[in-house]
Amino acid sequence: MITRETVEKIAKLARLQLSESDLEKYTGQLNNILADVEKLKELNTDAIEATTHAVEVANPLREDEVKTNTVIDAVLEISPDHEAHFFRVPKVL
C-alpha cells in the first residue's frame, strides 16, 4: 500500500513539486499499478529467471574507436549559464 507520505518522499527525491490534488491523484494511480502487479503475482513463476528486459537479444557492443562531436557549442549556447566553455552552476560543495 502506497501512502501519501511515500509519494511525497519520491517526489522530493525526484525534485518534483506536486500540488495537493496531484498528490491525491498519484497516490491512487500508484496503488492501482501495485494492485495490477499483485494480480500478476498469482502466476507461478518459480521456474522463470527474473527478466529486466522484455527482449532477450545479445548485447550490441561498440568498438573502442574515437569519434569527434561538436554538439557542445550548441548545448552551451542554450544552457542557462556558461563561461569559458564551462557550464556555470550555483555553488555546490
Binding site: 561498440r62 574507436e65 574515437v66 569519434k67 569527434t68 562531436n69 554538439v71 557542445i72 548545448v75 552551451l76 569559458a84 566553455h85 564551462f86 557550464f87
Partner: peptide, 19 residues
C-alpha cells in the same frame, strides 16, 4: 565514442550521450 584523453579544453570530449 568520445575520447577519454586527459587535459583537453573543458567540455570538448562530449556528445549527446555523455551530456
Amino acid at each position: 565514442s568520445c575520447s577519454t584523453e586527459f587535459g583537453k579544453p573543458p567540455n570538448t570530449n562530449t556528445c549527446e550521450v555523455c551530456l
